[in-house]
Amino acid sequence: MSARVAVTVSVNGTTHRREVEPRLLLSDFLRHELGLTGTHVGCEHGVCGACTIRLDGAPVRSCLMFAVQADGHAIATVEGLAPAPGRLSVLQEAFRDAHALQCGYCTPGILMTVSAFLEETPDPTEEEVRHALSGNLCRCTGYQHIVDAVLLAARRLREG
């Protein structure tokens, strides 16, 4: 077993410092060291997308990184999406209005993927939305309402 290593990360704007084993997955670090359990774990081999977070703005799989690698980086998770406690972001609202979640387990990863996608593609077509979602598996919804929600959020964001 190797020695613990210090990690300092900013998560949703708050700086956290911990000492962890190098093998600790970033997903486990966020969930069990920092208690940010909104990020979910579905496969631990990078396929399902439930654990998607944003690392310096880019969506990545938190199950395919070691926590020690996040040292000095800025992470955004689902807990940071809402503008204030008790309120939802435009994207989150659109997911509720379009019934884009059922069990809700895949939802945090999808929100993190889509939040980045809409920054790059503010006026997407349905086809573009479907491509953007294709790296996040959902077993409940059949995706249709998720696609609707993303298009709805895009429209609302454009219309301000």
């Binding site: 940010l36 998770t77 807990e79 999406l81 939802l88 509720r96 945090p108």
Partner: peptide
């Protein structure tokens, strides 16, 4: 139930 699920709570 959605507000809780969407906020990661």
């Amino acid at each position: 139930e959605d507000a809780r699920l969407l906020a990661g709570r």
